[in-house]
Design a protein around this nucleic acid. Sequence first.
DNA 1: ATACTGATGGCCT
DNA 2: GGCCATCAGTATA
Length: 196
Amino acid sequence: MERLVRPFFERYTPSVARELLGCLLVRRIGAKTISGKIVEVEAYRGSDDPASHSFRGATKRSAIMFGEAGHVYVFFSYGNHWCLNFTTEGKGQPGAVLIRALEPVEGVEEMVKNRGVSEEGRLTDGPGKLTKALSIDGSLNGEDAVTSKRLYVLGREAQVRISSSARIGISKGREQQWRYLVEGNPFVSKRVTRSR
DNA sequence: ATACTGATGGCCT
DNA sequence: GGCCATCAGTATA
């Protein structure tokens, strides 16, 4: 499999999001490799998307979304969890794809250790869980996934069936069906849309 | 099975 | 002060 290149990310965010499904997310820490197939994502854009961090323009947190596509955007959520995104579109045109769930492929023992659990099940079926499993935190914010040795994405080998829904955990922008899942994959997040 | 809640911090009004 | 791109635990059925 080939690593995803810059032009892949420099497109309309929902298209990038759909095509990230089935790709392999790779995390390398020294000699160790942890990887998983991307099975659930969400697209976030800019001034047309009230659910996005970049809706009201660039802030210290969201500045990365306004920069070059293909970079890692990691933010701290609910005071407890890190969430992983890849930036999209062009400079000045903000966008990012949130990685919501993985199907573990390599380094399962390491994931178990990082998660601090005893069982193998449900290691990466949520955005906060997969960052913990892959040891991803704010120190990777801004990393260039096109050139990084620590965190990158390999293209998919086979076509996947995709279904979509409203995004999870947001109250505005629910009209967009910008959450994408690999149809029938058991590793997608189990939480259902809140009705707040 | 669903429903609610505490933890905990950054960002917004 | 209120609102979150969350999760694990507890309570209730």
